[in-house]
Design a protein around this nucleic acid. Sequence first.
DNA 1: GTTAAGATCTGCT
DNA 2: GCAGATCTTAACG
Length: 197
Amino acid sequence: MPLYFNDLGRLNTEEVARGLLGHYLCHETTSGLISGIIVETEAYLEKNDSACHAARGITRRNATMFGPAGRAYVYFVYGNYYCLNVVTGSEGSGEAVLIRAVEPATGIEIMQHNRGKNCKLTNLANGPGKLCIAYGIDKRYDGHDLNKKPLYLAENSNPGYYETAATSRIGISTARDKLLRFIIKGNNYLSRREPIG
DNA sequence: GTTAAGATCTGCT
DNA sequence: GCAGATCTTAACG
């Protein structure tokens, strides 16, 4: 299925979350290009989703979620880490897709430098906080247009065969029953092992 | 002004 | 597998 990055706002958020799998997240840094294949995402919806930051209306933190689709929503959690989201839905709707994990492709040395010298390849960006550290993403990119450099999404014109799966989301205390986490099945760079069965 | 909770990660058992 | 670190954000008084 083709994914039109310039038109994210017209696709529903769950489809964007699943559609981003297999494509690239790129960052042109002063040290060089970093890229990786998105292997794990989560959808956060405006309606009937208490786990979404936008569920209780617009605030200073989540204002970007209510802006145009295709922007980055970057926020700070747990006193230590940033998380990167892609804003989706029509302007004013408050929906987004959390990028939870990528499979490192280009600039692996830069990521290792950012994450720590002895960091294993499978541990470089297999989680939303780790991903932001590896890519050097912080709050400066909140509101950045992800169709533009230096931080952008890129289509994978030659994706191999892969299966996707939907599971429950991670790290939230409400709405755990919803299957809004999307993964590339069997990928080695996921933030968690796949549930058995 | 004060407080409780959080879309996490690391290190230790 | 589990607890602790750590501090911004948002809700409440």
